[in-house]
Design a protein around this nucleic acid. Sequence first.
DNA 1: AGTGAAATGACCATAAT
DNA 2: ATTATGGTCATTTCACT
Lengths: 157, 157
Amino acid sequence: MRRPLSPSDRRILRTLQNEGRITNAALAEKVGLAASPCLRRLKALEDDGIIEGYRAIVSRKALGFTVEAFVFIKLEQSEPGWRTRLVERLKDYEEVIACHALAGEVDLIVHAVAKDIESFGEFTMNRLLTLPGVADVRSSFVLSNIKPMAPIPVPDH
Amino acid sequence: MRRPLSPSDRRILRTLQNEGRITNAALAEKVGLAASPCLRRLKALEDDGIIEGYRAIVSRKALGFTVEAFVFIKLEQSEPGWRTRLVERLKDYEEVIACHALAGEVDLIVHAVAKDIESFGEFTMNRLLTLPGVADVRSSFVLSNIKPMAPIPVPDH
DNA sequence: AGTGAAATGACCATAAT
DNA sequence: ATTATGGTCATTTCACT
């Protein structure tokens, strides 16, 4: 798939996880390279799928999302086809900012946002509980973001 | 705090959540502005804290993190000081890529990565369970990322 | 619109394999 | 010799006033 990451690659990854929009010139300076090799490495990291993309981090509050919650879903045992369709529906809900399938008690964990508690209620009642295949839905509101979206650690080798 | 977001602002926010490293020139074209006003709006969004930052999204697998899990922590009732220190320790663990305080059964939810199951075991056994104030630790491995880190929806008004 | 800075590509140098 | 590294320079494009 790919040769191992060089120390420069690792420094690039560390920097870009914290300053995703830094100019290549500044990035090069920070990681101790000239601009041109730095850009070459950056492009290679992108082409190889090691950097999957770049994202602006937008304030939820500024957009009016005052409610954040985790929803724990248990599924009924059913044909796999149902499960696939259910999961597709979940993905389409824009309140869902992340969703993972879990091993264990709970089958799915949904990270959701909403403008207020009422619209969150509407979401869980009308759009989650009603999905065919859902056996149980349990929500916990987020009280505080202790560590929101930290970078993936980039080990030295 | 701020005047309401203009339609252009909203288009900028939508675009930058998907292409955080797009050039201002390309962004301007995409949102239907000239470069100069687009840049002014972008700076204003940054200055007002609506855009909190930018991040490269790095492949966990490419960095050798094959294990991803959610850890559900219940705390003992104890003086608030303990809780603060516990939470600080949690933040310092680099395996912890996100952590939130929850209302309900579970007090804390920890999103963690590890190189393999063994090192994840070491993490939970030696570094989570041993924290003073922790009453219960329960982990669920992530089987699949159904919707990993989606953008915050930007409503039309 | 204009000026200085950045991005980008062609090409060269060095070292390790 | 080949591969991986990094650098320099010249040109185009962009950022910013």
